[in-house]
Design a protein around this nucleic acid. Sequence first.
RNA 1: GCCCGGGUGGCGGAAUUGGCAGACGCGGAGGACUCAAAAUCCUCUGGCCGCAAGGCCGUGCGGGUUCAAGUCCCGCCCCGGGCACCA
Length: 824
Amino acid sequence: MPEHYDPQSIEKRWQQRWSDEGTYVVDNDDPRPPFYVLSMYPYPSGPAHMGHVRNYTMGDLLVRYRTMRGDGVLSPIGFDSFGLPAENAAIKTGTHPRVNTEANVEALSDSLRRIGAAYDWRRVVRSHDPDYIRWTQWIFLKFYEAGLVYRNEAPVNWCPGCKTVLANEQVLPDGTCERSGDLVERRNMEQWFYRITAYAQELLDGLEPLDWPEKVKIMQRHWIGRSEGAQFGLPIADSEGNLRSDSEPLMVYTTRPDTSFGITFAVMSPEHPRVGELTTDEQSDAVEAFQKSVMDLSEIDRLSNAGNLDKRGVATGCYVINPFNGKSIPLFLADYVLMTYGTGAIMAVPGEDQRDWDFAMAHDCAIVRTVQPPADFDGEAYTGEGLAINSGFLDGMEMLQAKAAAIDWLESEGLGQRTVNFRLRDWLLSRQRYWGCPIPIVYCDVCGEKPVPEADLPVDLPDDVEFMPTGQSPLTTHEGFLAATCPDCGGLARRETDTMDTFVDSSWYFLRFADPWCDTAPFSATAVERWMPVDQYIGGVEHAILHLMYARFFTKALSDLGVAPKGIREPFRRLFTQGMIRLGGAKMSKSKGNLVAPEEILDFQGADALRLAHLQVKPPQEDVDWEDFGIDGCSKFLHRVWRLGVPGGSLTAGARSGPLTAIDEEVDRATHRLVNRVTREYDRWSYNTAVAGFMEFTNTLYRWIQSDDGPHADTLNSAVNTLLLVMAPAAPHLCAELWEGRNGGHIHTEPWPEADPAKLQDDMVTMVVQVNGKVRDRIEVQSDIGADAAEAMALASERIIEFLAGDIPVKVIVRPPTLVNLVI
RNA sequence: GCCCGGGUGGCGGAAUUGGCAGACGCGGAGGACUCAAAAUCCUCUGGCCGCAAGGCCGUGCGGGUUCAAGUCCCGCCCCGGGCACCA
């Protein structure tokens, strides 16, 4: 073997061998304990960027580590290959998304191989493969049958210039189209939805036992947004306050029924279906104008807190009655009341809600306090706890008691009931796009909306399409695609031209990996039973909410539908979210033109140095600036390891034989400590300190080798072998090459080394002696020293005697064998 | 505004339960090898005072608990991220 480390000459060879020998191929009847490691499958945008390298290095380390620990590790890879960028490129350059996407898949696959990532390549799935489309559609139809899919009107971003629907990211912050510059309108269109809200409670409850970052769980809980309160009706009145028996009460939802005596007005969403019915003739012009102005507002404007509340609401002229005290109160519309939350109408209690307070001030409404604020309270609305006042039968009650009493009263009077409400909304899955999975529905003039029969799946995307410069989906004008036969009457039908959100594809790919060969179902239940849930899922925190929520929903629904096993209720047992890479404080991205390409580093310092740099630079979960990477330091370190490990190398040529010295035994103990340390640190994702451990140990060996006595050949041999074993998951090529040269065989199939507990401690340790908490001396002591002996040694120390200057310690704290503290 | 993180040398960071602050790397200084340089190897490298031995200070700020605080408690400041009219 060459004395000089040359990554180029070894890395390709080992990548080939892992592939040829199927080192990381695992069958579904593998006898080893199953362990499923999954890094989120990437969108194929071309060769890997640094973010990919970081993500897939983390995952690969775990795959190789668990394999050495003796597990049969499932390590699949796939590609999230549908999506807007490929379609935009097609519109711009004319390159077909399929051509572009597949070239990118190849380029990214190459990159992944070049960084040494180990996958079972037989299991690759690509979202756009007909085989995958088929099962994505099949699942859609299963959900459709089960009532988990429905169609409804929903607002979309419509660009009048392009005559097409825009994704949120295509709308600029000023509300114009990024392509044409036209002002984007909000327009209602028929859209497909997944009924994820049916699982709201279960999605919330299921979070508890998951071994996920607490931060992600909190974000999901917040997103689901469960609240408890009451729903009840406000009877409709005329302007004199007389009950109008011809109208149903207006339903409102509140989390503060205890404050109901303080309701002094009510507010409806401008989209509320009863606006027309409840608006008086005198107010109808003003109300219509207001509704129109809200429609024209971009979502961003509407959600911002700016603007005067007097302009953001309008009176309907209608009155409603507060059922708690019988008082007649005005009904308004306001843009901040959302049709999508609760009942789309609220009761307003300005005394206890700041926004209601502000609105009341702007519209001259009464304000009544119903909770006693503390004596020193000098704010406006009081939102804290306190005793109920001005509240009839609730007076004097604490908040919780008053809530319960108010709801009990509503229920006994038959006016309303206790209600649980969620912020979570159903999942709008329609995309008016070409490059996505077609929705398998046809529309027959006679029979209406009909699912495509299972036997006719997949509904594939036609390739012979024209991309309009406007961005309109070519499916809407493709006669061959549009024409379909009605499965019921056999008559002519028109195909649905919307495609699915790409989050649909990524909501079940991890199940497909268990059995990508299955052609009778999306996956076989036995394979899923074996591998699922994913033991370790790895990805960016940017997917903390949507992707993870959707994947959890799919898993639960598929389980309930009997497609996946009953016991699989959660897809990802453990989740790790790694930080992103920035350059000069800014996120690296193609559009910013600040990418650092991994290729140059792979060509020069090699994959192992790049991997090590990613592991070493920072704790894996934190964001990192590219400037902080120490590629050269890592490369230098690998050269040091090479000189240490290369058989017959000049560095290690002078090793002794014969009896072992104390220093040899110390090195041996250090070797066991290394194993212990790296094992623990791999298990807790402390990869940066694991790398520090390699370096520290290597420094120890160098000093020993260059000491006067030199190293003992046997001790050195096992020390270096152990170093290679624990480094193998991090720097797989170099370790494999040196191992083969030294021992023959394949390091990645070697068992993980075990530390001998008896050798984890040195015989002698340094004990610090403090006086009043300050270190005044250090003494070498036996590591099994007792408390009395430790104290005696401390008191006998010359430096300590000097320091005490005759004082007798009033207190002595002894923590053998590391510390004695004398208090004087 | 609310909810999460975080703040430690010139820089990235390390520090099981409260027990030697600054591991490891980068950067810097010095030395060895060399005709010389690169590469390599070794040593030093928080600040201040001191020739030295050594001393004092030091983990965002201010208090507190403790024999002992980066770590625990109270009150602030700053930075990053998420959510944001959610009734």
